[in-house]
Design a protein around this nucleic acid. Structure first.
Lengths: 152, 152
DNA sequence: TAGCATTACTTTAGACTTCGATAGTCGTGT
DNA sequence: ACACGACTATCGAAGTCTAAAGTAATGCTA
């Protein structure tokens, strides 16, 4: 009998909220990745965008924290960016454990064309949403992020 | 000069909203998948949960629509569930192109233990969130989903 | 009933993802 | 000097994901 301990309305509301968040994430991500498809994968784009906005490049562990992915994962992504001539590795001479990931000049040019295009795609995707809906979502999602950041 | 066409406040708000949504999704997904880790991957769980709540099983294409993944992807996931003895394939005798995915008795037992546990993990993760925050998020996310569903 | 488009699943190739193990490197304490 | 523990990036295995091509079954239509 699965009804042994039925959920309260407040509990069901939280589950429903999560399912809706997952659905929105997946639907939007599909649109956005198909709008970049010919140029770049989303993970590669995320790495490029992070490096672009930081002078002097970023280490794998710094990138790993910002993008919420494991460092092992980044190895492959950066390999591919390097192979495309968009990024390069540069060992930190002060601490040879660390490797900075930097943009090549082509990578910088590439970013300056691609980032505004991607931002436009995001804006376009949510254009019809009411301005106050957007504001509410921002602050409510901030509340969730604060909750989750403060765990362990 | 990347400042050629600066974004309006409303545009920046939409981009910020999306970035927050991505962050919340990733943070929460990490917690939830680690709470299932020893038992099941999230995609396998999603397939099990869908089949569990539908009598007579589901076809690959029905599952594909509900879970927003490609059918090619499901082949591998169902293979693994079959190998674990939790699910089985059953060709539709009325239309031999279709395959129903059904739970084995062990699969049903497994679901009835795992699903409540996963629901509890979700509830626990968002417990501290205010009830009206939850309600607002539900309806605002519904607005996004409606927007995205109505595309092409 | 022979051809043809459609539908449903599988396969393939390439990319992403995690975890756990490994190998260098650094700093510290002895 | 040197051992120890901590940190950093890489590698390997297993799983997830997509798009595109392949295969099989079905249905339409002439």
């Amino acid at each position: 009998m699965p009804e042994r301990n039925p959920l309260s309305a407040a509990e069901r509301a939280r589950i429903g909220m999560w399912l809706r968040l997952v659905r929105c994430y997946n639907l939007a991500l599909r649109e956005l990745s198909s709008s970049l498809r010919e140029d770049c994968t989303i993970p590669q784009f995320d790495v490029l965008a992070q490096i672009r906005r930081s002078e002097d490049g970023l280490t794998f562990s710094a990138l790993s924290e910002r993008l919420l992915v494991t460092a092992g994962n980044l190895t492959g992504i950066v390999d591919r960016l390097e192979k495309r001539g968009l990024a390069r590795r540069e060992v930190n001479p002060k601490d040879r454990r660390q490797t900075f990931i930097k943009l090549t000049p082509e990578g910088t040019k590439y970013c300056d064309e691609l980032i505004p295009r991607h931002e436009k795609a995001i804006v376009e995707l949510f254009r019809e949403l009411g301005d106050n809906t957007v504001q509410n979502l921002r602050s409510d999602l901030d509340a969730i992020a604060a909750l989750l950041d403060s765990r362990d």
